[in-house]
Amino acid sequence: MGTAPASRDVTSYGMGLAAPLALFFLFFFVAPLVQLFWLSLHNDTAGLHWGLGQYIHFLTDPFSLSVLGSTLLLGAEVTAVCLVLGFPIAWLYQRVGPRLQTIIILIVLLPLLTSVVVRTFAWIVILGRQGIINATLQSLGIIDTPLKLLYTQFGVVIALAQVQMPLMILPLITALGRIDSNLDDASCSLGAGSWRTFFRVVLPLSLPGVIAGCTLTYAAAITAFITQSLVGGGQMLFMPMYLYQQASTLQNWPFASAISIIFLLAVLAVVSVFTTLGRLSRGYGGA
C-alpha cells in the first residue's frame, strides 16, 4: 500500500473489504434464490413446462391464502406481545443501577444462550396437561380439568414471544439509551405528566428501536419452524410447515418454490412497511 497517493481522500472507502462476504452471498444466497424462482415458474413437478400455474394455484386457493394470512397474523401477535412486555424491561434497564443492569441484561440474553429446541421443549413441559401451569391451577382449585394450552394458537404465541424476546429488547435498550434523560426532566418541568412525557417524548424518540425490534421479532416469529411445529402441532399449519410438506413429503418442488417466493414477498412487504415507518419516525424524532 506504499504506492497509495498521498492526496487520497481518507473519508472515502473501497468496497474491497466487503467483497468476500458479498461473494459468499452471491454464491450461496443469490444464486440459489434465482434457482428457486426459476423452479417456481414451472407447472409440473419435473420442471419441464414453463408457466405461472403454481402462483395461480396458490393465489386462487382460499386455503393457501388462509395459511399465509394466519402466519402473518401469528407474527403480528408475537410482535405485539414482545413489544408490550419488552418495552417496560428496556425502560427499566435505563433507570436502574449498574448491578441491576447486569442482571437484567443477563436475564434477557440467557434465552439466546440455549438452543431454540431446548427452549421450545421447556414450553412443552410448562404448557402440557401435567405441566407447571395446569398443575398449579389445579392445586389451587381454580380449575378441575387441565386446560388445553399445548397445541393451541395461544401456546404458540406465548412460546414464540419468549423465544424471540431478546430480539425485541436489545434494540429497545439501545434506542432508549440514546435518549438524553434531560429531555424527560425538561418535559416534566414544562408541566407534562409522566404519561404525557412518555407518549410525546420517550416513545417517539425510541421509535427507531421499536421498528428495529419489531422487524427482527416479526421475521423470526413467522419463520420459526421448530417452535411452530412442536408447540403448535400438526393441525396448525403455518407457511414454514406448508413449505416443508410440499417440498419434503410431496416432492412438489415447483409449488414449494412458489410458496417460498410468495412468503418471501409477503415478508418483504411487511418489513418494508416497518422500514418506511422507521424512516418517518427518524424525521419525527429529529423534528
Binding site: 396437561r129 388445553k148 399445548l150 397445541y151 411445529s229 412442536l230 403448535g232 402441532g233 400438526g234 393441525q235 410447515m241
Partner: peptide, 9 residues
C-alpha cells in the same frame, strides 16, 4: 388431544 407434526413428537 393432539395431531403431532411428526411421529417423533
Amino acid at each position: 388431544a393432539a395431531v403431532a407434526a411428526n411421529p417423533g413428537a
